[in-house]
């Protein structure tokens, strides 16, 4: 073990963590307005990525077109999930929403295997250049693009939430849906827009992940759901900054754990950290306030 290894692991982890962070941002937006868990979030992303892959394989679509197909595909499938699993239920039927979204997960996975029956499918690479050398460290250019895209999207979401009218409406719905409705906010439309926006962000994340891998399997659905969930919970619910921090932390932690302990223990370390954090510090890194709010709502009769 040398300092170079440590630095290289941290750097690699940071880059992978960027994709986790993007997944967590989408997750936390949905959870924020719905207060319910969307298990079909990862499969929504998978559906978008699969549509993009199909366009790439059968029509030879260029990378940029694939990106657009993935984003629109994920957004439309997100809309479908919202209509079927979230809009019909009130907040009281949290379990029903969750199980319904699980049912659609199964549905989307089977639909995806009909679209592309092969287990592994090629995906257009983002940048096929040599890794950059920074002193003794290696840095992949496409990873750098992933990190930049994450920061850009996080910035845009923060701006949207803090500075625009829609953002104000979203924050109002997150805080107090009933009060928001009383002051004239169309709560259902805000929820739908947030849901679609989050699914589109997930689509970007899915595109970047598939493009850096150069291939895609249907496992990306489950992978995105679990990684996004863990990153979101690590960072704390309902906070964009927390989601970014949680994602990057998870990436760095996994990179080191994989290097020193192997891939199986890597996953164990991530789940173990989540368990300990939830048991002793359930607010996550930056979600203390959000947690207080949830608890306060829970305390009200």
């Amino acid at each position: 073990m040398t300092a170079v290894d440590l630095a290289q692991n941290t750097l690699d982890g940071l880059m992978v963590g960027a994709s986790y962070a993007l997944l967590a941002v989408g997750f936390t937006l949905i959870f924020g307005v719905m207060r319910r868990l969307n298990l079909a979030y990862g499969p929504t992303i998978m559906a978008g990525v699969y549509l993009g892959t199909a366009a790439f394989i059968s029509l030879g679509a260029p990378t940029l077109v694939v990106l657009v197909v993935v984003i629109i595909g994920a957004a439309l499938v997100g809309l479908y999930v919202e209509r079927l699993c979230f809009r019909p239920f009130g907040e009281g039927a949290r379990a029903a929403s969750m199980v319904a979204s699980f049912a659609l997960w199964m549905q989307l996975e089977e639909a995806a295997t009909h679209l592309l029956p092969q287990h592994m499918n090629p995906f257009p690479p983002l940048l096929a250049t040599q890794p950059l050398e920074i002193g003794p460290l290696l840095l992949r250019a496409d990873h750098l693009v992933m990190l930049a895209a994450t920061l850009l999207i996080a910035g845009a979401v923060t701006y949207l939430l803090a500075r625009t009218k829609l953002g104000l409406a979203i924050r109002a719905v997150i805080d107090q849906p009933r009060a928001a409705a009383i002051v004239g906010i169309h709560v259902e439309r805000v929820m739908m827009l947030t849901f679609v926006l989050a699914s589109a962000i997930g689509g970007v994340a899915g595109f970047l992940i598939a493009a850096t891998d150069g291939q895609v399997t249907h496992m990306i659905g489950m992978w995105a759901t679990t990684k996004g969930l863990v990153a979101m919970m690590l960072g704390g619910l309902g906070s964009v900054k927390g989601a970014i921090a949680g994602g990057l932390l998870l990436g760095i932690l996994e990179a080191h754990a994989q290097w020193f302990l192997g891939p199986q223990v890597r996953d164990m370390v991530a789940w173990g950290l989540l368990f300990v954090l939830l048991a002793f510090w359930p607010g996550g890194l930056m979600g203390a306030k959000a947690l207080d709010r949830t608890m306060a709502v829970g305390r009200r009769v």
């Binding site: 199986q264 164990m268 789940w271 368990f275 939830l278």
Partner: peptide, 25 residues
């Protein structure tokens, strides 16, 4: 002992984390 005071998604995620730890174990 560690998780029952949690509720909602926190409990769900804590139990999932434990189950995945057991599976990898």
């Amino acid at each position: 002992l560690a998780t029952l005071r949690l509720s909602g998604i926190y409990f769900a995620m804590a139990t999932l984390a434990f189950a995945e730890i057991m599976r990898i174990a």
